[in-house]
Amino acid sequence: MNSSLVLLQLLNGLQLGMVLFLVAAGLTLVFGVMDFINLAHGVQYTLGAYLTAASTAYFANFGIGLIVGLASAAVLGYLLELLVFRVLTSRSHLEQVLGTFGVILIVTDAMKLIFGPAPISFSAPEALSGMVMLTPTLAYPLWRMLIILAGVGVALLLWLLVARTRIGMLVRAGSTDREIVDLMGVNIDRLFVLVFVFGALLAAFAGAMAGPLISVEPTMGDNIVILAFVVIVVGGIGSVRGAFFAAILIGVVDVLGRAFATTLLKSVIGASAATAAGPALASMLIYILMVLILMARPAGLFSASGAT
């Protein structure tokens, strides 16, 4: 276990964290502003990957494919908002869970109907799929590096939007006290549409960036949305800053656990026991972390509204 391997694993954790952040950002905003639990947020991730893959194949150009794919994912997100989510925002959390669960079933099977159950082809453009030399001896996949940079870029953009613009101010106000913002004459529904579509776009972007690495298949959004919920609860609901740091924390802990848990356990409990327990422990690690953090800070690391 040398230092360059640890460094690589930290970068891997950071990269996973950035994908999680892109998905969690929209989730935490929608939740924070509209008090809307959207289980179907992972669907946007799936749509982003599928639509970008399909349009990249159609235009034979990743750049155009990305723009067309994200634009169409955003349009579909808007349609979902218009047809389903708009009605659900005025309902109880449980009805939101039920309705958005139904949406997951619909979109998953629709993808299966249109694109087939098998994973579809989606690879990074040739020029971006090589390695980048971090030091003369340390190479890292360029595409993963791009994901990290894109995540940090989006985080900065979001910080500017939330901290420096009028819309951002309304979003912050909305996540603290929605009724007051409503009473002040702000069209909260329009604000919600804006926040929702923007969040959908970010999740679709995450899917489009992760697509060339993983396998693009109908159920790809299922697990990511669970991790995104872990991220926003750990980070503090409604807090973009919280989501950013929590995503990095979850990503790094998950990767380090997978990389080193079995090896470390071997020195403690012996090789055969470690081979059995190591992978299970590595998978559990983020949930253990979440429980510990929430025991200490029930409102998460960065609570948006202070006291809850």
């Binding site: 389903v84 009605v87 659900l88 309902r91 009805e95 039920l98 309705g99 669960f101 139904g102 949406v103 997951i104 079933l105 619909i106 998953t108 099977d109 629709a110 109907l113």
Partner: peptide, 12 residues
Amino acid sequence: KLGLGLTIVAIV
């Protein structure tokens, strides 16, 4: 599952 999803959303 498509049918179940549509039913659930319709009910809600």
